[in-house]
Each structure stands twice: as structure tokens, then as C-alpha cells.
Amino acid sequence: MSKVAIIQFPGSNCEYETAKFVESCNIEADIIRWNCSSKEFHRYSAYVLPGGFSYQDRVRAGVMATKLPIMKELELAAAENKPVLGICNGCQILAEAGLVPNLGGENKIEMALAPNMSNDKPKGFICDWVYVKIKNPENCVFTSMFTSEDILPIQVNHGEGNFIIEESKKELISQLTMIQYCDKDGNIVPSNNVNPNGSFQNIAGLGSKQGNILAIMPHPERAIFSSQIPGWIDSKWVSHKNHSFSNGDVTLGPWKKMIQSLSYFLENSKVLQT
């Protein structure tokens, strides 16, 4: 059976809820440490870099973790087309490692997560619920079961989530899977109320050219069960939540499709291997 590794870095703080996120769709997940052996590391079929503050965000968010030997192993796993998901600090690590978007195929840094901005002023740390849509969901193993019409509530929780794309790559990213901040009706507008950190093209997450890696700043693991959705947001998922409470059910939430997409990929890649 395929197993997913949640990589715990010094300073990670979302690894346990990320493991629950993966396990919610009956995929086994282990939390492994940043200094595990190469042999142990390569036992897994997919990898998730969870949120937190690896190395206290020293120098820049995520950059210290990219220098660890385990990142060489992650590069090798990614080159073997194994799925890799980075959430929040994990997203920052993937950006600083050059694994996303990797349009040039050489793991060079092509995007950065800069401090949050609003009207060209620093905005500081944000913690809120926002809405996103997914462009080209079919191009990434983590989003293949979504549609580009889905309007998904999700929590943001970061100080440096402002996607900056290298000038020469700005046009090329349109072909990639792109998760974009939108309003409750799905409109992708550059307003500060919609784009919480000033990201280029409202980007909240970006897939790799190869489609097996996704870096996302908001936290899908905090919207896997409908019970996690707050009652005050304007979303159909609130009525799902209320319905599940009245029935006493634990129902899956808006981001279940992310793990279902991964599960589908892992099942099919297993078939291909056998």
C-alpha cells in the first residue's frame, strides 16, 4: 500500500493535522524527521512538507531548510515523479529550493514568497478565511479531481505569502496549475479584500511544470472536514457543515478532493508499476 511521508523540520507545527488530512481518505501517513536516512526516506510514495516555521524563518522563510541533505533526497524523489506537496512553510521551502515551478527543469529559483503587501505597504502576518479557484486543475496530481469552477474556502496564515515570479517566467506559468484568490462568487480581482497578500495574479498556489509538485500557501488541511468551516463565511460548505452536525456525521470538506486526487494518482501509478 502506498504511504505518504510528512516531513517534520525543526520548527514545523502542522505535521499532525497534515497527517490527519492525508489519512482522511484512507492513505497511510507517517511523520518522518528531517534527518532520517536516505533508505527510510525513499520508502514513501509521496511527500508533504507541512506548515510552521522551519529554523524560526532565519535569514528568510524556508531557506535554511532547503540547505539540508534531505532536500537532495526530495529532489531525487521529485525527479522520479513522486508527488510532493508543500503547504505554507512547506510552500516557501519548495520555492527556495527551486522545485516549483521549475519551468527550466534545473531546480533554479524562479519564484519567491515575499512579505505580505497591501497597496504597496507592508501588511504583516495575516490569519483569515479566503476563497480560491484552481486554474488548470488537470495538470497536477493534487488537483486533478477539482474543476476550474470550484470556489473553495480555505484558511491563510502567514507573513510571507506574496508570490513573486521571475520576469521571464511570468507568461509561462499560465500553463501550470494555479490556485488563485477569488471573491465568494469566484471573481479573481486584484482587490486587497480578495488578494490578501499582494501576490502576482492572485496566486495562492502553483504547480510544477512536471505536475507532480504543488506549493500552496493557504492550509488545505484546515478545510478537510466540513466541521472545520466557520459558520460566518458565505459558502455552500457552511450548509454542508450544518447538515452534517444535524445528522451527527463527520463529512469531508472542500479540500477532500486534494487527497482523493493524490489517492487516484498513487493507485494508478501502482497499476502502471505492476
Partner: peptide
């Protein structure tokens, strides 16, 4: 100047 994970640390030239 950080260009990839093996080169550079103190500055991210994108910002």
C-alpha cells in the same frame, strides 16, 4: 545570491 539550493543564501534576488 541564491539561485538554487546549492548556491547562495543571504539574498533572494527576486525581492
Amino acid at each position: 545570491n541564491t539561485t538554487n539550493r546549492n548556491e547562495g543564501l543571504l539574498v533572494n534576488p527576486l525581492f
